[in-house]
Amino acid sequence: MPAPRKTSSNTAVTALMLLSPPLLYPVFYLVCLIQDTVLGDRLIIDHLRYVARRDLLELFLRDWAAALPVSYLVAVPVLGLAVLIVRRGIAGVCTSLAVPSLAVAAMLSATVLDINALPVLATSAAVFILLPCWVLSRC
């Protein structure tokens, strides 16, 4: 019989499940912004520069609120799987495989296939999954 988990670890998992999903949209937006500014057509940065801050904040909050249900829907199974991986002690293996794979996929899609959306989505997902897993492994 495996030993019961520590209460502090269970609290961390619960906190992770509840607090991480709201971060998904800002992470995604930030990665979009970086990608569009560095590699893309600078559409977002033009928009940000041209529109009043109050209007932008209002729109951002509306979109963030709309993204929340989707974020929870996506995050709970994905993070659940990530937690399982961390607890099985194979996080290091997964990370060392996943990060280079994502990087290669991103580079390929961006340069060979000229698909800029994939790196953005992949990077967002990577940041979103790996960061909480790293935090969790420290608990």
């Binding site: 995604f28 057509d41 509306r62 979109d63 709309a66 989707v70 800029n116 959306a117």
Partner: peptide, 16 residues
């Protein structure tokens, strides 16, 4: 420009 559309749509989920 499908990727531009996808990212734009995902950035503005309040109008999905």
């Amino acid at each position: 420009d499908w990727q531009k559309k996808v990212l734009y749509g995902m950035r503005h989920l309040s109008h999905a």
